[in-house]
Amino acid sequence: MLEIRWHSRAGQGAVTGAKGLADVISTTGKHVQAFAFYGSAKRGAAMTAYNRVDDKVIMNHEKYMEPDFVFVIDPALAITTDITINGKDTTKYIITTHLSTEELIKIQPKLEGKEVYTLDCITIANETIGRAIPNTPMLGAFMKISGMYDIEFFKESMQRVLAKLPQKIVDANMVAIQRAYDEVK
C-alpha cells in the first residue's frame, strides 16, 4: 500500500490533483482511493487530501494515515502547520517553496533528518499556466522522486485527465509538469 497526504489551501487544486493521480494510476491496473477533509472549509483555508494505492482492492476507509509521501503545495503550510504529523521514518516530503531545502529545514526544524525535496510549484504554475495552481507541477515532481512512471507516459495520461480544459491550458500544464520534474531536488 502506497499512501500520500497532500497539504494545500482550499482552491489550490489538491483534490483535483489527488483525483487526477488516482485516475492515471487506475489505468495501470492498480486500485486507488482519493479523498479529502473538507469540513466547512472556505477558499484559502488549510486542508488535506489523500491518496491510497494498492495491488488489491482497498477496503480501509480510515481517514487516519501514516503517509509514505507528503506533498505540500502551499509554501506557508510547511511553516504554519505540522506537515510531519503521523509521519514514518521513511516518509518522503515534497514541498513547494522558494527556499532551498537547507534554508527550509533551518526555519522548520521538524524536517530535520527527514527526506525532504523542494521545488517552487507556485512560480512554475504562474510562469506556465498563468495561475497559482500548483497541483500538476507537484505530480511532475512526484514522478521524479518516486520513479513511479516514465514522465512521457504520465504526461500523456494527464492530457486525457485534463481533456475538458482548453488545449492551451492542457499544453501549459504539460510544460509545468516537465519543469517540476526537472527542477525538484
Binding site: A22, H31, V32, Q33
Partner: peptide
C-alpha cells in the same frame, strides 16, 4: 464524504 467524495475505481 467517505463514499460520496472518495474517488475509487
Amino acid at each position: 464524504f467517505i463514499t460520496s467524495h472518495t474517488a475509487q475505481g
